[in-house]
Design a protein around this nucleic acid. Structure first.
Length: 523
RNA sequence: GGCCUGUUCGUCUAGUGGUUAGGACGUAUCCCUUUCACGGAUAAAACACGGGUUCGACUCCCGUACGGGCUACCA
């Protein structure tokens, strides 16, 4: 016995293989919170040799947004969170769109009705509103359709059997509501929050089957998780309050033994103030909240995504993995494999995490620094300014080599290093005013001559020549270099002047110096 | 309002009764450097509050405050 339990603890006996699902609703673009839920599900599945499933929860036909489900799949692909089963990737539990599963829910709703755990209700929206108002005015603690108020409503509990049948046969619209038992406490274990208990008095008789013939989330979710043999439900915190309802559904359907384990993830909060992160915050504070650029089909409004802003998918994944989870070590940069290896639901945070754009940028910068010059130069092409000049691959690689330490995003290599692609337009000497002293002009003229005489125009050669020149003339580096830099780049910062010159080539460097020289009036 | 849930530097977090409360981002200063950055170093910066329990609480319990979520024929 002891040996057995020991073995059980060290050898994963997969009585219940891990099967998890990411179940977004295609009502709009997937945002960073949903992305993180998908990531955690994916990491958990990989870590436990399980299966990661994508299921589209489109039971609310009225809220469907065209292109949203495609956007979700595109986003997962960009982030390299591949699903093992899902739309277009059948795994034996298809279909994976709830709208295509429409005909399987009905029988379970009916089963609940015949078992006395659910009932038909014929109340109109108006009647429901009146009921809530009446309860509110009466000072009731809960204004809901429950074990007390249901007795005043039009449903198969209050109406005579014949009447119910007549209404249904006549095609009168109705919904099916769960009959929440009174005076019970529903308890379940959450992998992140621990034991959660709620009294059925605070639960209402939720609609589980709508008058349009579609189930609501609650029923569809439970039925599909059961049918798809889901072992763990990893979802956002917003579902915690309705989990007791789901537990009851498993119980009433006779599936309690197969009920998945629950893990409710903390929400991602906005960077300032309070509340859940939203698209608005991104627009207002100037950072993306969507992985890919999204154009709202209704308004035409475009929201730029992480990809368009120059974020690397691996950086975004690394960053959001750390929003609510921490490996407990001091390592922060994780490859996908390392994340899988280190991930555990036990170390997921309970409290919501604020989105921090500065940290996101830092992660991107770290990943950018680790890219090779070749990788970077290939990424640059879509950002390149007008291609009047043909930029050779070697040239681009050199620009990347010099600029990558100084930027956080690939496109910044071009914006911060614009002088590599076109000569600066210098109209005055104000920026280097203090350096322009008598003698500087002839000094630079002499230097240009020496540059012209250089046979090998390498960074080292240029550097050595300039150093020798400065020593020979007995001047300070700081008296000369800033002026050269200004003539070459039009700015005061950037890589070493000799590096820039060698990448630009002798002709270009000399031209720029001569152009600058013309502005110096002093001898 | 009701229910659920949460609370360690500005932010992300480590910490599971005894620590100088650690790291990272950001900020400041210094070093490196013609410059900008990178890198390195240093600094400021936190246990929401009040009661318990205990020899001893950031750690456990209760309450308060504050935050968040849910409260639809939306998910």
């Amino acid at each position: 016995m002891v040996l057995f339990s020991y073995l059980r603890s060290v050898i994963p006996i997969n009585m219940n293989p891990v099967r998890v699902r990411f179940a977004p609703s295609p009502t709009g673009p997937l945002h960073i919170g949903g992305l993180r839920t998908a990531l955690y599900n994916y990491l958990f599945a990989r870590k436990n040799n399980g299966t990661f499933i994508l299921r589209i929860e489109d039971t609310d036909q009225s809220r469907l947004v065209p292109g949203a489900d495609e956007y979700i799949i595109d986003s997962l692909n960009w982030c390299r969170i591949p699903f093992d089963e899902g739309p277009g990737n059948e795994g034996g539990y298809e279909p994976y769109r709830q709208s295509e599963r429409k005909n399987i829910y009905r029988q379970y709703a009916e089963k609940l009705v015949s078992a006395g755990h659910a009932y038909y209700a014929f109340d109109s929206a108006d009647e429901l509103e009146q009921m809530r108002k009446r309860l509110k005015d009466a000072g009731a603690k809960n204004q809901q359709y429950d074990s007390i108020s249901r007795m005043q409503m039009k449903n198969s509990i209050t109406l005579p059997e014949g009447d119910v049948k007549r209404r249904i046969d006549a095609g009168e619209p109705y919904v099916i509501r769960i009959k929440i038992p009174s005076g019970e406490t529903v308890t379940f274990k959450d992998l992140i929050h621990g034991t959660v208990a709620i009294h059925t008095f605070d639960l209402d008789d939720k609609v589980i089957y709508k008058s349009d013939g579609m189930p609501t989330y609650h029923l569809a979710n439970v039925v599909d998780d059961y049918l798809m043999k889901i072992s763990h439900v990893i979802r956002g915190d917003e579902w915690l309050p309705s989990t007791p309802l789901h537990v009851l559904l498993y119980r009433f359907l006779g599936w309690e033994d197969a009920m998945p384990q629950f893990a409710h993830l903390p929400l991602i909060l906005r960077p300032d103030g309070n509340g859940k992160l939203s698209k608005r915050d991104g627009d207002r504070l100037g950072f993306p909240v969507f992985p890919l650029t999204w154009k709202d089909p209704a308004t035409g409004e475009v929201s730029e995504g992480f990809r368009a802003r120059g974020y690397f998918p691996e950086a975004v994944m690394n960053f959001i993995a750390f929003l609510g989870w921490n490996p407990g070590t001091e390592q922060e940069l994780f490859t996908r494999e390392e994340l899988i290896d280190a991930f555990s639901l036990d170390s997921v945070q309970k409290a919501g995490a604020r989105f921090d754009n500065e940290k996101a940028k830092w992660f991107n910068q770290q990943y950018l620094h680790r890219k090779t010059d070749d990788e970077l130069s290939r990424m640059l092409s879509p950002f390149l300014p007008e291609k009047k000049i043909h930029y050779s691959n070697d040239f681009l690689k050199n620009v990347c080599r010099l600029m990558k330490e100084r930027v956080s995003f690939p496109h910044e290599i071009i914006s911060h290093g614009d002088y590599f692609f076109s000569a600066p337009v210098i109209s005055d000497l104000k920026a280097v005013e203090k350096k322009i002293k008598p003698g500087i002009k002839s000094l630079i003229e002499e230097l240009v001559n020496r540059i012209n005489r250089l046979t090998v125009f390498s960074s080292e050669e240029i550097d050595n020549m300039i150093k020798g020149f400065i020593a020979e003339k007995n001047i300070n580096t700081a008296e000369l270099l800033p002026v050269l830099r200004y003539f070459i780049t039009g700015t005061s910062g950037g890589p070493s002047v000799h590096e820039i010159m060698s990448v630009l080539g002798k002709n270009e460097a000399v031209n720029r110096l001569n152009t600058g020289l013309q502005l110096i009036i002093l001898p």
